[in-house]
Design a protein around this nucleic acid. Structure first.
Length: 276
DNA sequence: GTCTATGTTTGCGG
DNA sequence: TCCGCAAACATAGA
């Protein structure tokens, strides 16, 4: 269930696997909601003969730009995976959309829980402009982040998960960043001191950058856990300090890590390091 | 059978 | 308008 580092890893792998320059011959759609609002027939007609010119990421979206003015936005949601395999490769029941490429490979969208989306559009900015700033963008400054926090009367955890506030954070890295910055998930954003706000800014960048270096976080051993385009798992789980470490010792002070529910989401914190 | 899940949207109600 | 909450989407694994 990918967040920014996992999505970036998929993008990097697709580029490394020479997806740029490929032309889509046709598409097989087995679950219509994945490509909504288009119907399979329109989707197939419009995506046929499109040549991929760029592959990039914005928030948790993977974007394929085509030689025309069309774009394919891919959101993996909870269980989506992209697989680049030879067309002869046996199909599995969770491959809901298959794009057939002109070099004999398929780009397959594997998604057990069916929450993922492929949006074929001429106006990607309609969707992408709704997103908050990119945390790793050079133009995203600590002063900007401090100002953003000041005007919000929301609790930090749900705010960090809000993609219109800041793009790309999910449950793992929100918990990890708050621990790194020694901030309580229930703290109101507007009441965070300027100093702590800057700490949080750097904490967010640190946990995301470190995870990208490690090709993202894959948890457990289940099939729907994160794996990149080459079916390869991420190695970042070794860097998690609080996430899914309930009852284990805080790496900083040895206090037992607690799990609470915030905004319907499981939340992990050190009650000693992260005071309200 | 129960509970949990790395995400997002919708429809309330305060 | 801002904010929080519950439910929905659909499936697998413990």
């Amino acid at each position: 269930m990918p967040e920014l580092p996992e999505v970036q890893t998929v993008v990097n792998d697709l580029i490394a696997a020479q997806l740029i320059g490929q032309t889509i011959v046709t598409a097989d759609v087995h679950w219509n909601k994945t490509i909504a609002p288009l119907k399979p027939k329109e989707f197939r007609t419009k995506i046929a003969n499109q040549t991929i010119t760029h592959i990039w990421r914005r928030g948790k979206y993977i974007i394929l730009d085509f030689q025309s003015d069309w774009h394919l936005l891919i959101h993996l949601r909870m269980s989506g995976q992209l697989q680049l395999v030879p067309q002869t490769h046996e199909r599995s029941k969770h491959e809901h959309v298959v794009l057939l490429l002109n070099d004999g490979r398929d780009l397959r969208f594997h998604d057990t829980r069916k929450f993922g989306r492929m949006i074929l559009t001429q106006n990607p900015t309609n969707i992408l402009n709704e997103l908050g700033p990119e945390p790793l963008d050079q133009n995203f400054t600590r002063n900007q982040f401090r100002t953003m926090l000041k005007s919000r009367n929301r609790r930090l955890k749900p705010l960090l998960l809000d993609q219109t506030f800041i793009a790309g954070l999910g449950n793992i890295y929100a918990d990890e960043a708050l621990w790194e910055a020694k901030l309580h998930p229930l703290q109101i954003a507007a009441k965070v001191s300027p100093r702590k706000a800057v700490n949080l800014y750097y904490a967010i960048r640190k946990v995301l950058e470190r995870s990208i270096v490690n090709r993202g976080t894959s948890l457990g051993s289940g099939k729907s856990n994160f794996a990149s385009a080459g079916q390869r798992r991420g190695e970042n789980v070794v860097n998690l300090q609080v996430f899914q470490r309930t009852e284990q010792a805080c790496p900083r002070c040895q206090t037992k890590i607690r799990r609470i529910i915030v905004g319907q989401r499981s939340t992990h914190l050190c009650p000693k390091c992260q005071k309200l």
